[in-house]
């Protein structure tokens, strides 16, 4: 299963980007195969609706869960409607966040 973590950089030792809609990169990580990729977020420069568009990008990548620091109403509504689980993290390196996710230590946004 693929999960998406919002990231400040393109590597697994980058820090989590606490913003969802305007994060720098999406790290798409496959929990089963450990394959991953960093996707640049082109929605940073939108004047509005960045949350909705970023949610769309995550959906298109096939992620089933998202980990970020903050989540606005529009992004939340879009992800929830698409059946994607949302988790919140206060920060840390991407690899640490993935470990926390695996150990079920992250707060889930219901």
């Amino acid at each position: 299963m693929k999960i998406c973590i919002t990231s400040e950089g393109q590597t697994l030792d980058s820090n989590l980007d606490v913003r969802f809609g305007r994060c720098a990169y999406f790290i798409i990580f496959d929990i089963d195969t450990k394959n991953w990729e960093a996707v640049k977020n082109d929605n940073i420069n939108l004047t509005g609706g960045a949350g909705i568009q970023s949610a769309q990008s995550v959906i298109a990548k096939g992620a089933k869960a998202v980990v970020s620091g903050k989540m606005g109403e529009n992004a939340y509504k879009t992800l929830k409607t698409a059946g994607i689980a949302i988790y919140l993290s206060s920060g840390g390196k991407i690899e640490e966040v993935i470990e926390q996710y695996k150990l079920n230590k992250l707060e889930q946004m219901i």
Binding site: G49, I52, Q53, A55, Q56, T81, G83
Partner: peptide, 20 residues
């Protein structure tokens, strides 16, 4: 202004239309 979100249909679910 991204006031529409269309989630395409997949194998096990029909598509979804969201308006803002």
């Amino acid at each position: 202004y991204k006031s529409l979100a269309i989630i395409p249909s997949s194998n096990n679910s029909k598509g979804i239309v969201l308006t803002f």
